[in-house]
Design a protein around this nucleic acid. Structure first.
Length: 799
DNA sequence: AGCACGCCGACT
DNA sequence: GTCGGCGTGCTC
């Protein structure tokens, strides 16, 4: 008899190893590892992943048979099955969560349950449950306790059955299209009847003359100046007919012109040769490609990808979250055409599913994507590229907390192919490894276009603020006016981390705080509310101080909305665009803003971090950084690195065109090394300085780190549990391990749960893995008391 | 996760 | 005496 090893979709420690199931005869020749199945588990049916097939099982008891097969082909290939097991171990997470993360969002089954009445009679008998329908969604929250016990009873009697809805695959998108109905004579007649000021209708009728046969999508009509409401009206009048068109998903919105490989300069040539040699000789070598903006890293990537393809292999290129702008994808696609698949977060589930299918079927040979694309089901990978390898979006913030770089290296080892880590400001970890010879350092020290670096100046805001209360220093304001006069473009960057507008009473100092979290509420002028960024709590903006009843309650701090207002006030004629989380929430709005600014339809682009990355506007000759040091205020060992990265990156932005650029950095810490060295773009000196700081503080890359976070509704309970863990760690680790804490987290209370953390710093702890696994097993037992423990291996911050 | 099993308080 | 609370352990 054939036995399948199944990882069931129950994320707990006890179910973290495979369960054996008998393979029924009718599925015997179909079932393969990597397929999903439905299995009986206890007295219910759940989904699971087949991870292996064998002749017998180590399980003593009687095996239950697999009930159903969900997939017709493996959705996780053998390589990714191995990877999932390794990753679960590495990140202290459940195998099932790892398997689930590897699938594109639209394919994840959510175990959605349906209640089905076995007879109409039952259905009519219990209107509170069925509301007259034979099949209802079964959501526990939808039923009160009484209904719940009735359901239980009915289920025992066999009067209702519970089934799982597994149809989560995305449906085709149908879009509305309109087609004209009128002949030329009718159009002429209609034109006589409409009012003269009905511009939209007149336009539509005129268009119908030349497009009598075409069924255009609403978006197409809109691009020709006819609104959807005009079309609806026209439909009523019988001028046009609406039809549904199946939308063929195509994430590449615009066509690209094919491009040819550029001639390489010697440094690039050398880099390409080294990488290509590793590809040809199937060596899983890791390269660190260091090069400032404009030094031609992308061309190195492209020619190496081309080489991998020539060798009959595939290539994976990873880019940071917000960089994946059409500009970059366009360049890849112009070289490799429709062999390129793209995977990123702004795409819909359906689009991602389609692209994933193309990769899985072997239709796409080059994958460009963000973090999760590292799990793309490519076979025979010949090259993995990680652009901007230092970027923090490569580390997943929640379970499984994997670091893309490590996954990439694992896949490279599996596929016998090189990894290229590219950056102008490599993470200290990577650079240190390159210095030790673990990675091969390749550098592109020259800017190709030979333009002078922009002139970078630093403005001390301490003296500036003494003079006037404005977010813009005199120097920056003057420079802005100068560029506006010359019709050149300006980027203003607000380093907003933890820097947003809050309300404060000028008389008693009262600041409204979130009732559920230990944090002050943030002003949102668009919705006229005070919001909590952690739990989503909202309340109206008070006009009077609730404490002292003073009316002088005003907002402080600088959010991008406030900055926008201020800039508009100072430069009333300037066209200002704002780009931040609020203005880019809608799909495609990110692109729309970039396009608009790129077409010089605005003079000033103002926004947070996201405008610092990957954008390239030739007309921009001034970049202003409003608060360079707000990241420096954070109690975090990486804050200098972050600040340096950000400032170096924006400085590279300006001055690429024939006009020399200027960068103005406003700061309260003008003498901080991260700011000074960013001014001169001196990565080497920064690396040396920062390494010394890290060495002294026993931080990465000198030490490995693990962060343990615990939370529960009671502060006492959280603290005592964490103290228990700390003692357990002390007992099981060597005296050389540094255990910090437990300490309350910077924001101790979120959503009425109290958070404490322990940091472990170590160099060599052979027992660490086992000890932490023990901690998790113990904590699973305590979870019923409401304590949750999370382990973050190599956290990005200690906050 | 979800459910059964099992051991202690307030009720027909 | 029983019904039902939720603490504990198991699910191939």
């Amino acid at each position: 008899m054939q036995v399948a090893q199944v990882i069931v979709d129950v994320p707990t420690r006890q179910t973290n190893s495979p369960f054996s199931y008998a393979i029924p005869d009718n599925l015997a020749d179909q079932i393969q590892p990597g397929m999903r199945v439905q299995v009986p588990f206890g007295n219910r049916k759940i989904t699971g992943f087949v991870v292996g097939i064998s002749d017998k099982s180590s399980f003593e008891g009687k095996l239950k048979p697999i009930s159903d097969l969900i997939d017709l082909y493996p959705v996780i290939n053998p390589e990714l099955l191995d990877l999932a097991a390794w990753m679960a171990d590495q990140t202290y997470s459940f195998k099932i969560s790892c398997l689930q993360t590897m699938l594109p969002g639209g394919m994840r089954t959510k175990n959605k349950k349906k209640l089905i009445a076995t007879s109409q009679q039952i259905c009519d008998q219990y209107p509170a449950i069925f509301h007259g329908q034979r099949v209802v969604d079964y959501d526990r929250q939808n039923f009160d306790n009484q209904s719940l016990s009735t359901i239980l009873k009915l289920q025992k009697n066999g009067d209702i059955s519970v089934e799982y809805d597994l149809t989560n695959h995305s449906k085709p998108i149908m879009l509305k299209a309109y087609q004209g109905n009128l002949d030329d004579q009718q159009i002429a007649d209609a034109l006589k009847t409409v009012r003269k000021n009905a511009v939209g209708q007149i336009k539509l009728l005129n268009l119908l003359k030349s497009h009598s046969k075409d069924a255009f999508l609403v978006s197409k009509w809109e691009s020709m100046g006819v609104t959807s409401s005009t079309l609806k009206g026209a439909e009523k009048k019988g001028w046009v007919t609406a039809t549904l068109k199946r939308h063929v998903r195509n994430p590449f919105l615009r066509p690209v012109k094919p491009s040819q490989p550029f001639k390489l300069h010697p440094d690039q040539q050398k880099a390409v040769e080294s990488v290509n040699h590793a590809i040809s000789s199937k060596k899983d070598q890791v390269f660190l490609l260091e090069g400032v903006t404009g030094s031609g890293k992308t061309e190195v990537y492209l020619q190496s990808i081309a080489h991998a393809l020539e060798m009959g292999r595939t290539a994976l290129m990873l880019v940071p979250e917000i960089t994946l702008t059409p500009q970059i994808v366009g360049r890849i696609r112009s070289r490799f055409g429709n062999q390129v698949a793209m995977l990123h977060s702004a795409m819909s589930n359906g689009e991602r599913y389609d692209e994933w299918q193309r990769i899985n079927r072997g239709k796409a040979k080059v994958v460009v994507g963000v973090r999760s694309a590292v799990f793309a089901p490519l076979k025979n990978i010949g090259l993995i590229i990680m652009d901007e390898e230092h970027d923090s979006s490569y580390k997943q913030a929640d379970n499984p907390r994997y670091q893309t770089r490590d996954v990439a290296k694992w896949r490279a080892a599996y596929n016998h192919c090189p990894v290229v880590l590219g950056s102008a400001t490599p993470s200290l970890e990577s650079r240190a490894r390159a210095m030790k010879g673990v990675y091969t350092l390749l550098s592109l020290p020259h800017r190709i276009n030979r333009h002078a670096l922009p002139h970078v100046s630093i403005v001390d805001m301490k003296t500036e603020m003494a003079k006037h209360q404005s977010a813009l220093s005199t120097q920056l304001a003057d420079a802005i006016q100068d560029r506006l006069d010359k019709h050149e473009q300006i980027i203003l960057l607000l380093n907003r981390r933890g820097y947003s507008a809050f309300l404060m009473c000028r008389d008693c100092g009262y600041v409204p705080r979130c009732p559920n979290c230990d944090i002050s509420l943030t002003m949102h002028k668009d919705t006229h509310t005070l919001n909590c960024h952690y739990c989503g709590h909202k309340e109206p903006i008070p006009t009077m101080c609730p404490k002292c009843h003073s009316k002088r309650i005003r907002f402080y701090g600088m959010g991008s909305q406030q900055l926008e207002e201020q800039v508009k006030n100072m430069f009333p004629t300037a066209r200002v665009l704002r780009m931040d989380v609020d203005t880019t929430r809608k799909k495609g709005s990110h692109e729309a803003i970039i396009d608009k600014f790129g077409a010089h339809k605005a003079d000033i682009l103002l926004g947070t971090q996201m405008i610092a990355k990957g954008l390239d506007f030739p007309e921009v000759t001034l970049v202003g950084v409003l608060n360079a040091d707000s990241a420096l205020q954070f109690p975090d060992f990486r804050s200098s690195e972050r600040t340096f990265e950000l400032l170096t990156q924006v400085s590279g932005r300006s001055g690429r065109a024939d006009k020399t650029g200027e960068v103005i950095i406003q700061t309260f810490n003008p003498d901080h090394y991260a700011i000074r060295l960013a001014q001169t773009q001196d990565y080497e000196k920064f690396y040396a300085t920062e390494m010394r700081v890290r060495h002294e503080g026993k931080y990465p890359p000198y030490y490995y780190t693990v962060k343990l976070t615990g939370n529960s509704p009671s502060e006492n309970q959280t603290a005592s549990e964490m103290f228990g863990i700390m003692n357990f760690l002390k007992k099981n680790l060597s005296p050389k391990a540094i255990i910090l804490g437990p300490t309350p987290k910077t924001i101790t209370r979120i959503n009425n749960r109290y958070y404490y953390q322990i940091i472990i710093k170590y160099r060599k702890e052979p027992t660490l893995k086992a000890t932490l696994d023990d901690v998790l097993v113990q904590s699973q037992k305590n979870q019923r008391q409401g304590i949750q423990i999370a382990i973050d291996n190599e956290p990005l911050d200690f906050m």
